[in-house]
Design a protein around this nucleic acid. Structure first.
Lengths: 249, 249
DNA sequence: ATGATTTATTTGTCCGACATATGAAAATTG
DNA sequence: CAATTTTCATATGTCGGACAAATAAATCAT
């Protein structure tokens, strides 16, 4: 891509796009070193500041990493699943918080997605995953557990369920769906009675997965979805009573 | 968050993080204007260049937009579903291209995720979505269609299927899964016989959705997955014969 | 040979300047 | 007075040069 000083787009955007395209197309490969900032500024005939702004844009997307010193420079970064998880979660979280997505819609999407890992989990689950799920269920029974901690354990449980499908691509995609829900879930206050029921539903899912019964696990998950939405509606109607509607159903 | 000149992290990273956190926590709300670059450089006691690099990092993540002129500045951006789609797709694409994910794993994840929209699609589908699906199926029957165009139509078909669930959060999450597969799918060359079978499978899915039969649609999707993986294996074994293994099964 | 020092290279930060876009205010004009 | 034009203030975009700091290789001293 040619750099055009008269384009409507900023020079740093044009340069960042050019380099990004080169990465995506494979012209630049992982761990390859880009020319130094001075060299790039000569090549593109722009100042070093402009090149730097372009590189910062790429760094913000984890596309490159930089290192100082004699053998330093900007290197094409291997995008790890870890990096991708992080980006996916922040993006999903912001998307939900900025777009007034209804709790119902978000819950629906979350449980629909989570269901997709059930058949694989029923086949591939092993003791590590089942142990993690049981452990979180155990934690959820503790007295004096705050709502936040209960929710966090809930997320861990679902994360273990997702990971038990043993497909990294699936885990990555579902991470956003599960984690991004946490802020919304934190709006719900769980009474002791609520928790007992949720824990029973969790146990039902874990049992079904352990038994390798995908259909049963999907039914249990469906029950959990229905109950979660029921609790969410309770929260919303109480908010309405107080005259402080903060979200739609 | 305090800015520490002696931190191991770059100043521009620290500033970008501070602002990002303020956005996520809700301290800065959509369309609010940040202080000017000069003001920020005074507040954080860094140079304007450093502030600019921080802002470019945020802009690269669509968190802010900037405008020149008297009433210009940097504004908190509402992250749209459109923006999020884009980020999701580039991230997923790079993740797959940089991590030697096997075609089998990717296919498995993709179809598992796609399955999650079936029950909702079976209930909510309307003529618009069904029309779009039928239209793409029609396109796929055309003679002289290149493999790329066939794949593109394939993506459109699946996109219509996903959208027919009428849940924007679900559409967003699945967009990455479906679109990111395209480069991998483009490796497959479709013979006339292959296409006939795939089109039949597509039609089976569309029929089931139209009939509101979720279970049947899931079976049809499973068939399509199996056939896709079969074709992928053919490609890979042929590559192996030529001694140019480019991906694992 | 080994350890300390120098040196070259590269990114990080700062400063000052000017270009450019843009809306608002002021001046001009019919 | 109203409409248009001009001026102006303010903001981002770009430039160039300078120095600091990190870092590894080359050099030197012991």
């Amino acid at each position: 891509m040619k750099i055009d000083p008269n384009s409507s787009k900023d020079l740093s955007v044009q340069i960042a796009t050019a380099i990004r395209d080169a990465i995506i197309s494979g012209d630049l490969i992982v761990d390859e070193r880009l020319p130094s900032e001075s060299d790039l500024s000569e090549q593109y005939e722009v100042s070093r500041s402009t090149v730097r702004e372009a590189l910062k844009r790429l760094a913000a997307q984890n596309l490159i990493r930089t290192q100082r010193g004699a053998t330093g420079g900007a290197f094409i970064n291997r995008l790890t699943f870890e990096d991708a998880y992080g980006q996916q979660i922040t993006t999903s979280t912001l998307l939900l918080s900025m777009n007034e997505v209804s709790l119902t819609t978000a819950c629906e999407a979350r449980f629909a997605l989570e269901r997709s890992c059930i058949p694989l989990a029923a086949i591939r689950r092993n003791d590590t995953h089942l142990g993690k799920m049981r452990q979180e269920i155990q934690r959820q029974t503790q007295d004096g557990l705050s709502d936040e901690d209960f929710c966090a354990s809930d997320v861990s449980f679902h994360r273990a369920l997702v990971d038990s499908a043993q497909n990294p691509v699936l885990s990555y995609q579902l991470a956003g769906a599960v984690e991004a829900m946490q802020p919304l879930m934190n709006m719900i206050t769980y009474t002791a009675r609520n928790r007992v029921k949720i824990i029973a539903l969790h146990a039902g899912i874990a049992d079904a997965i352990e038994a390798g019964d995908a259909a049963l696990a999907e039914f249990s998950l469906k029950d959990l979805e229905a109950y979660t939405i029921e609790l969410a509606h309770d929260v919303l109607s109480k908010q309405k009573d107080k005259g402080r509607p903060q979200a739609q159903a």
